[in-house]
Design a protein around this nucleic acid. Structure first.
Lengths: 341, 341
DNA sequence: ACGTTTTGCTAACACGATTCAGTAACGCGC
DNA sequence: GCGCGTTACTGAATCGTGTTAGCAAAACGT
C-alpha cells in the first residue's frame, strides 16, 4: 500500500539500484545496456510500490511537456466538441494531453488563454474556431508551434487545416444531378463567408460538369437559420418553374425547408429532394425523412491538427501548409430519383 | 526581447535582488515586509523581460497543481460540451485548468484515463457522464478529491451532482396543466433509467397537485428516439379520447411527435400542445413551432462540480453530498391554452 | 549608549525527475 | 598479466520554483 507518493528514489532503493538506472528502465531507454534481469527487478519494484511518475518533474527536467493547448470558442457551438474529441484522441495516442482553454471569441480573452497555456509549458498550440473564417492570431502564440483549425490568418503565416467547402458543395450538387434533377435550387449561408462562397462555387462546378447550366435565379440568399430556409423554400417553390431539388447551405436551413415543403402538402424525398450540409449529429439523422447531407469533418480536423503539430514539434519539415479535409456525403432518404425512372 | 525563457533568476538579477524576494513579490506574499519601491522595481523588471512563470516548476515545488481532471465520454453526445464548458469557466475563474480525458464508456479506458490524469498531478477529479446513471468509480480515483457529475456510485461514497429530474418533470406537466389541459399524454424514455423514473414521477405529482388524476393508459413507453416519439404519438392520437397535450421524455421524442401530428393534419401548438425535455440547443429553438421544453443544466452541473471540488481541495467540510440542480423550463410556442379561453 | 524590535532582505534546501560524464568490474586476446 | 573493449551501472549537475530559517542594518525605546 503506497502511503502518499512513491518516487523514483523509492523504487531505486527497493530494487537496489540507482535513480539513474530506474529512469532508464522505466523510460525504455535501450541505449544503455541493462540486462533483462535488472529491468525485471526494477519494473516489479515499481509495480509493487505503486509508482506513479510525476509529470511536472518530468516536464521540468526534460523541458518537453506532454501536452498541447487547444483554444476554442467552447461556448457557441456543439461543433467544438468534435474538434476537441478528434484532437483529444490523436493526442492521447501518443500519450499527450490536451489543455483546453476558452477564447469566447474575445481577442483579449484569447490572448490571455494563450498566455496561460504557455505558462503550462504546452509544446504546441491549436487555435480552432467553430465556423470557418479568417482570424488574427494573438502575438504570443508565436512562442511555440501553432496550427489553425477551421480558420486561417490573413498572411497565411500559420499552417491551417480547413474543410473542403468546394468539394462539399460539389458533392451535394452531384448527388442531386445524378438523381436526375436538372432544376436545382440553392439556399445560401450568410453571403461572403468562406463556407458560403466555397459551397456555392462547388455546386456551380458540379452542375457544369453534369451538363446543367447554373441559374442564378434559383439561388436565394439565406443566413443559416431555419427561418431563412423556410422562407427561401417558399420563394423557390413559388416560382413559375419551381426546382425539384434544393441544396440547403446547412442542416438548419434544410429543417426550415422541410417545414415549408410539408406545409404546401408536398413530400420531402418524393416531390422535392433536399440535401443539407454539416451533418449535425442530433439533427440530420432524426429528421423525417432522414436528411441526406454533407458532413463537416470536425473530428478529422482536430486529429489533423494534432498530427501536424506533432510534426512541427519534432522539427520535421512540413510540406503542406494549407491542408483541406474532405467533406464526405451522408446519404439518407431526402433525395429521390427524378425524371426517367 | 526575451530570447528563450526568462526565469525568476533573470528577473532577480535585473532588479538587483535575490530570487526569493522575486518569488515573494510575484506571488503577492504580503507577510514578508517588502517596501512598495522594491515591489515596483521587481514587477517592472518582470514586465520588461517578459517573464512567464513555469507552471511545471511551480507544481513540483509547491506540490499543488493548478488543474483538475475531467473524464467524460466525449464521443457520444453534445451534452459533454456543456459540462466541459461550465467546468472550464468555473475553473478558469480561479486560474485553474481543466485536463480533459476521454473515457469512452470503457472501464479499462476509464481507469487508464484517471491514472494518466493523476500522473499529471491533478488536484481533483470530475467524472462526468452524458446521461444520468449509476456508475462504478475506478479504484485509483480515490487518490484525490473526486466528484461525480450527472452520475452517482451505488454506495454513495462520492459526492455527486445531478439534475433534478423530478422537478423537471413536475415543471413540464405543470406548464400543460396551467394551460388548461387535463388530458395529458406522456411518451417516456427507456424505462428504468433515472431520467425516465424521475420525470415521470414529477409529472404524476404535478397532475395530482392540479387536481388531475394520472391515467396510466396515457403513458406510452418510448426509447428516446424520434421514431419512438412518432409512433408513440400515433398511439396516443388513435385513442378514443386522445390527449390534447403530450409531455415528451426528451426533445428528440418531441421531434417525432411533431411529425406524427403534422401528418394527421393537426397543428402543433394549436390543436396539440407539446413539451419536451433537454432543451437541445440546435434542435428545440429551431423546430416549428419552437419547442417549449425543460432544460438540462449541464453547464451548471459542470460549474457546481468544480465549485465542490474546490471546497474539497481546500478541506472545507461539505455539507451536502448529493446536490441536485434545477431544470428550468424554456417557454416557447408549442403549448396552447386549452378549454375556457 | 545599549538592548530590543522591526524592516528588508538572502542562503540554502526541497521537489522529482532527466541526463551527461564517468567508472568499476569483467571478459578476452596475446 | 597487460591493454582494451564491453557491460552494467552510478554520481552529480540541472530544470525553475517554493519555502523555511535566519541575518544585517536600521529604528526605537529608555
Amino acid at each position: 500500500m503506497p502511503p502518499q507518493s512513491v518516487t523514483m528514489a523509492d523504487v531505486a532503493k527497493a530494487a537496489g539500484v540507482s535513480r539513474t538506472t530506474v529512469s532508464f528502465v522505466l523510460n525504455g531507454r535501450m541505449e544503455s545496456s541493462i540486462p533483462e534481469s535488472t529491468r525485471e527487478r526494477i519494473n516489479q519494484a515499481a509495480r509493487e510500490l505503486g509508482y506513479r511518475p510525476n509529470a511536472a518533474a518530468r516536464t521540468l527536467a526534460s523541458k518537453r511537456s506532454s501536452w498541447f493547448g487547444l483554444v476554442t470558442e467552447i461556448a457557441t457551438s456543439p461543433f467544438a466538441t468534435d474538434v476537441i474529441k478528434g484532437a483529444q484522441q490523436a493526442a492521447w495516442k501518443d500519450g499527450n494531453f490536451l489543455l483546453v482553454a476558452p477564447s469566447e471569441d474575445d481577442p483579449g480573452m484569447e490572448q490571455l488563454a494563450v498566455e496561460k497555456l504557455l505558462e503550462q509549458q504546452v509544446g504546441g498550440l491549436i487555435i480552432a474556431t467553430t465556423w470557418h473564417r479568417e482570424i488574427t492570431v494573438p502575438e504570443n502564440a508565436k512562442s511555440v508551434p501553432c496550427v489553425l483549425v477551421n480558420c486561417f490568418d490573413a498572411e497565411r503565416e500559420f499552417p491551417s487545416i480547413v474543410p473542403d467547402e468546394i468539394g462539399g458543395g460539389y458533392a451535394a450538387a452531384e448527388i442531386l444531378a445524378e438523381a436526375g434533377h436538372t432544376n436545382i435550387g440553392h439556399i445560401t449561408l450568410k453571403t461572403g463567408i468562406p463556407a458560403q462562397i466555397g459551397r456555392q462555387t462547388g455546386m456551380k462546378q458540379a452542375l457544369l460538369d453534369h451538363g446543367i447550366e447554373p441559374d442564378d435565379s434559383k439561388i436565394v440568399p439565406g443566413d443559416g437559420t431555419a427561418d431563412s430556409g423556410y422562407h427561401g423554400t417558399q420563394t423557390l417553390l413559388s416560382q413559375s418553374d419551381p426546382p425539384t431539388a434544393i441544396f440547403c447551405g446547412n442542416d438548419r436551413i434544410a429543417m426550415g425547408a422541410y417545414d415549408a415543403i410539408k406545409e404546401r402538402g408536398l413530400r420531402v424525398g418524393e416531390d422535392i429532394s433536399i440535401v443539407g450540409f454539416d451533418d449535425q449529429e442530433i439533427l440530420a439523422p432524426h429528421m423525417r425523412p432522414k436528411l441526406t447531407t454533407i458532413a463537416l469533418p470536425f473530428e478529422e480536423l482536430g486529429m489533423a491538427g494534432v498530427a501536424l503539430l506533432n510534426q512541427m514539434v519534432e522539427g520535421s519539415p512540413i510540406e503542406n501548409r494549407q491542408i483541406t479535409i474532405g467533406c464526405p456525403p451522408r446519404i439518407r432518404s431526402s433525395v429521390a430519383m427524378h425524371g426517367r425512372r
